[in-house]
């Protein structure tokens, strides 16, 4: 078996922005003193005149982004997911989403795989915060290919977008020429016994779990829900009904994120057994990304075990 290529979605973000810098003179990129980490620095290198560092002041950064957008600019505002969606939440609410301005909020270092920096820096509520805002679109790329596509689509779309990015190198799942569809779930592995709805890095973990279970004769479908809002509710219902059981898998609190969005869809519409898998309403802590995934039950082995628990309820 050939080695799978791994690229962090934040790296793909920086690269995609740098690419767009040459194509689209209307794009501005902002950061809050973390451009080396969010990789927005890649844009700054090729287009310093349209890169704006707001310093360690996320609230003002989002306000400035809204003002730039009100003048017709397309703005990507980047920082760690914890800070940009948390500290600047109300600026995103009132200065971006309420007036539906063309600002793309990019939160890198999402989830627990931030690793050693610990619980203060690991965003586990960002999807929840962002998807609760009217006018907001929420995108979570599973790999570098999806990230590039999302950056380009977000730039072409007129309105607020939240883009959730990761620090850890993630396996490249999609071919360069893969055709994604905005707002549509994506089947990455066919299966018939149960479907795993995953997002971000967890799509890869779900694929590993599916492989483990295949050896035991269990057929697991894996779906990449890259657009969490607007959610592809038809797809989710159809896949759940077809397989007769489902789990959600996310590097996020099980309260308010992808799992909650799916539960909202299934409630009253499907009687199939369903389990939300993710961070179980706890803060993270320091550790290696791999150790943290195992500790919080987001590794392939634990996921496989949970899948079997749900299958037992069928």
């Amino acid at each position: 078996m050939t080695e799978i290529k791994k690229i962090a979605t934040r790296d793909a973000y920086g690269k995609a922005l740098a690419e767009l810098a040459k194509e689209n003179s209307n794009i501005f990129v902002m950061d809050a003193d973390l451009s080396q980490s969010t990789k927005s620095v890649e844009f700054a290198k090729v287009c310093p005149e349209r890169f704006v560092n707001a310093g360690i002041a996320e609230g003002n950064m989002i306000g400035v982004a809204a003002g730039l957008a009100a003048m017709g600019k397309t703005v990507f505002a980047s920082s760690f997911a914890v800070f940009v969606t948390g500290r600047a939440f109300e600026q995103i609410r009132n200065s971006v989403c309420y007036p539906r301005l063309n600002v793309k909020v990019a939160g890198s270092h999402s989830g627990i795989t931030v690793g050693e920096d610990g619980g203060t820096h690991q965003a586990i509520a960002d999807i929840s915060l962002m998807r609760s805002l009217p006018n907001m679109t929420v995108l979570v790329p599973a790999d570098a290919t999806a990230t590039r596509w999302m950056v380009r689509e977000a730039a072409a779309y007129d309105g607020p977008v939240y883009l959730r990015l990761g620090r850890l190198a993630a396996p490249v799942l999609y071919a360069d020429n893969h055709e994604f569809k905005w707002g549509k779930g994506e089947i990455v592995r066919m299966g018939k016994d149960i479907v795993v709805f995953a997002c971000g890095l967890m799509v890869s973990i779900a694929l590993e779990a599916a492989e483990l279970l295949a050896a035991e004769g269990i057929s697991v479908a894996v779906a990449d829900i890259h657009t969490i809002k607007p959610l592809d509710t038809d797809f989710i219902l159809e896949m759940t009904e077809r397989c007769g059981a489902a789990i959600s898998l996310e590097e996020h609190n099980i309260i308010g994120g992808l799992g909650s969005a799916i539960a909202e869809t299934l409630a009253g519409n499907s009687a199939a057994p369903f389990m939300r898998c993710g961070v179980e309403d706890k803060f993270g802590q320091s550790g290696s990304p791999e150790a943290l995934l195992k500790h919080y039950g987001l590794d392939a082995e634990t996921t496989a075990m949970k899948i079997k628990q749900v299958l037992a309820r069928k």
Partner: peptide, 25 residues
Amino acid sequence: VDMSTGSLGQGISTACGMALAAKKD
């Protein structure tokens, strides 16, 4: 009305963004 406002402190930030865009343009 050039900007939606109401939550105090936010308007001045958006005015900064407008001023920056105007200078760049």
